[in-house]
């Protein structure tokens, strides 16, 4: 009985938090997108003096990049610099 009530409360809390979780995640993702742009702006033609160094992060972001271009509505990577799929 007590377990069921606890489960119910957990579900209820989750219901209330659901739209809220989406907003937080979206905000964080927008920040990530901006960060990605700052790192690799050179690839889309915006001069970036530290590109040489940021390129070192390339292996770490390759998976995120794949998600990013899918999110932006491109089924395949549009940049010749990054070939992920």
């Amino acid at each position: 009985m007590l377990d069921n009530i606890k489960k119910l409360i957990r579900y209820y809390e989750e219901v209330l938090e659901m739209p809220h979780r989406t907003e937080v995640a979206r905000e964080l993702r927008d920040q990530d997108d901006l960060f990605l742009l700052l790192l690799y702006s050179e690839m889309i033609g915006i001069p970036n003096p530290v590109y040489y160094y940021t390129l070192e992060l390339y292996p770490h972001i390759i998976e995120d990049f794949h998600d990013w271009h899918l999110r932006m509505g491109m089924d395949k990577s549009q940049l010749t610099g990054i070939r992920c799929c």
Partner: peptide, 13 residues
């Protein structure tokens, strides 16, 4: 993607 597309328990949804 953890933002818009998240598999969710049917009661919660």
């Amino acid at each position: 993607d953890g933002v818009d597309f998240v598999p969710t328990n049917k009661f919660v949804l």
